[in-house]
Write a protein that binds this DNA or RNA. Structure first.
Length: 613
RNA sequence: GGACCCAUAGCUCAGCUGGAUAGAGCAGCUCACUUCUAAUGAGCAGGCCUCAGGUUCGAAUCCUGAUGGGUUCACCA
């Protein structure tokens, strides 16, 4: 039983004994005491006024006396304005520290025998990863780590969107303009290489479109289809997609390629495989640089035809309906309209595909929970998919969760590929590490380290800054990514937290040989020390909350608060000049536990700690 | 037209199930390094918590409505 439960139980018993009122323990309003008052925890006594028929101040007195008498760890109380402030005996806190220090796996729950699948990243194979993917990847990885800490077996997967017209565009551009160039021959990373041809296709297409607009055919189309008062420029801007489908030479070729791909044409398939391998090779390097891994990759090219089984079942059970070849259902109960599941030519849709994929993955792993880390623009898509699976009474339907995160904007507005403002993932990683390096070299603190270790430290600091900057924001909110601020190392940043850790390491390194068991004789607990122990004691609850809320930012805030508390403590109290052996042993132990807790909580964000910086 | 998300200091963000005088960081202005690394600490200044109602002993938090911003649904993935 922790101290909060102990107090709550005591309040329940007190209210029962004194006033004969039943209150559930979770209804007890209990919060940390504001620092301007004496005490550790505050009980709000207003809720008991009716049963007690007394003034809040008197209730506070009654309850305070009762709790101090009956609760061994509470040694004092005071009442202010109907708030009952309770003081916890300092031996309780020092006891907590000893307990935590003795637990090497503090924060890691025992395996619960359950599986959770986390799907994240899920890129398209026609261009490199960008800042938006980074947010996705960090959220996916962090969620995975958090679930692991709460006892789940985590299966990390991604769905690679490796088919469709987009990849055909890159393929076509490479065939026509590539002259046999490869990532090796050009010295480019595979994903950037393929992305180059995707861009090439578009520039060629735009050129072709501009030329077409001069033709008589284009003039005729404009005259025939223009809307009221629409001028030529506006019309052609809006008509681009139709042009691609109706008249474009390049468009026709790309579409023919897609048809051949679907017909399993050996040549097209070979080219497709080659270019996909290039891209995936490039992605692997990016994942590696970010320190993330996957247990299993699903390829859209394997899954896009799935779902037939579920659709049959749905039709039989009257959950889905059929008009000719088209299959649809009505989702008006969740604020949507009729949803097409198979098109009128009988071909698949995004929905049918996701239905099939969900079933396939359940067959593969029987995970009771699945977290889809996908941008919030797809909220209604997933609502639809989950709703249909529920109606089909699929056994896994209730465990599906869409972790929807907001878009990442730049200070200048949103990223637009057309305006070249998309922040490339690899460039960004290189940049933050470079900034960390420049900073560290200027400080000159680690110049005596072997070069490889230095490089490793720069990487940890740079990535620490970047990851923390992104993960500290509540995932469901849209966020502004300021490149300058993302490499800052002061204030509420990753490196600030790393620095607190480095201070812990430094103290441990310089500590004299003393009898650590003497820590239990320490009995002059300082407020700064109590703050730290209190914070550390909340770690497991914070992890549980982060898991429940699907929100790593909770742990970012926790890490920052703990680091801040340690920096304050470090500043106010000189550990190595402690008044006696007991105090020094206690503080060294506290310092070590802070270090371990910081390391664990940052690991849940995917952030590593340097030993020195 | 329907559905969903967001709105807190100049900027970027916290604020858990309703609780005392709404918190951090950055930017601005002070102060503290012969000290276990100042990537630090202490302080000043900065707020009609978008607005209007409602519930309550008590609302940034819950409910209703409005305004502003964003997303989405109507056989693309």
């Amino acid at each position: 039983m922790n101290i909060l439960e102990e107090i709550a139980a005591s309040v329940v018993a007190g209210v029962q004994t004194l006033y004969g009122q039943e209150t559930p323990a979770e209804k007890v309003a209990l919060s940390p005491t504001r620092k301007e008052f004496e005490g550790d925890y505050t009980v709000v006594v207003f809720p008991y006024t009716k049963a007690a028929k007394k003034k809040p101040a008197d209730i506070g007195e009654d309850l305070g006396k009762y709790i101090v008498e009956n609760s061994p760890n509470i040694n004092a109380y005071n009442v202010i304005n109907g708030f009952l402030n309770l003081s916890v005996d300092s031996s309780y806190w020092t006891g907590v520290l000893e307990t935590v220090a003795a637990n090497d796996n503090y924060g890691q729950a025992a395996p619960n025998g359950k599986k959770i699948m986390v799907e994240y990243s899920s890129p398209n194979t026609n261009k490199p990863l960008h800042l938006g993917h980074i947010r996705n990847i960090l959220l996916g990885w962090s969620s995975s780590m958090i679930y692991q800490a709460t006892g789940y077996e985590v299966i990390k997967v991604q769905i690679v969107n490796d088919r469709g017209i987009a990849i055909c565009r890159s393929m076509l551009a490479w065939l026509r303009f590539g002259e046999g160039e490869t990532p090796e021959s050009s010295g480019m990373k595979g994903d950037h290489f393929v992305g180059k041809y995707y861009v090439k296709f578009n520039t060629e297409f735009v050129k072709e479109y501009a030329e077409w607009q001069m033709t008589d055919q284009a003039k005729a189309v404009f005259e025939e289809k223009k809307k009221e008062g629409q001028d030529e420029a506006a019309f052609f801007k809006a008509y681009k997609n139709d042009y691609f489908n109706e008249y474009s030479y390049l468009g026709r070729e790309a579409k023919e390629m897609l048809v051949k791909w679907e017909a399993n044409d050996p040549e097209v398939r070979a080219l497709w495989r080659k270019m996909n391998d290039w891209v995936l090779g490039g992605f692997d390097k990016t994942y590696d640089s970010l320190g993330v891994t996957f247990d299993k990759l699903y390829f859209e090219s394997d899954t896009y035809l799935l779902g037939k089984e579920l659709i049959e079942k749905g039709l039989e059970e009257g959950v889905l309906f059929k008009d000719g070849k088209r299959v649809w259902t009505d989702l008006s109960n969740i604020g949507m309209q009729k949803k097409t599941i198979l098109k009128s030519d009988g071909t698949s849709t995004y929905t049918s595909q996701d239905l099939g994929t969900a079933q396939m993955r359940y067959n593969d792993y029987q995970a009771e929970k699945v977290v889809y880390v996908v941008g919030d623009e797809q909220i209604s898509h997933f609502q639809g998919v989950f709703e249909i699976l529920k109606r089909l009474k699929e056994p896994y339907a209730d465990g599906l969760y869409h972790l929807a995160y907001g878009m990442v904007d730049l200070p200048t507005g949103r990223m637009k590929s057309r305006e070249g403002t998309v922040v490339d993932a690899d460039d960004l990683v290189a940049e933050v590490i470079g900034a960390a390096k420049a900073d560290a070299i200027e400080r000159g603190e680690i110049v005596d380290m072997p070069v490889a270790e230095q490089e490793d430290t720069f990487r940890k600091i740079g990535l620490g800054a970047l990851k923390y900057f992104i993960l500290k924001v509540n995932s469901k909110k849209r966020m502004v990514f300021n490149p300058q601020e993302s490499v800052e190392t002061q204030g509420n940043t990753g490196p600030y937290i790393q620095y607190a850790y480095v201070r812990c390491s430094g103290v441990a390194r310089k500590a004299p040989e003393i009898n650590m068991a003497a820590s239990t004789d320490y009995n002059d607990l300082q407020p700064q020390e109590k703050e730290l122990i209190l914070k550390i004691s909340q770690f497991p609850a914070e992890i549980a909350n982060a898991a429940k809320e699907y929100d790593p930012s909770i742990l970012a805030a926790f890490s920052y608060d703990l680091a801040k508390g340690y920096n304050k403590f470090y500043h106010d109290i000189n550990i190595l000049k402690s008044e006696n052996e007991a105090a020094m042993a206690f503080r060294l132990k506290l310092s070590a536990v802070v270090a371990r807790t910081l390391k664990s909580s940052m690991a849940l964000l995917g952030i590593e700690m340097p030993a020195r910086m």
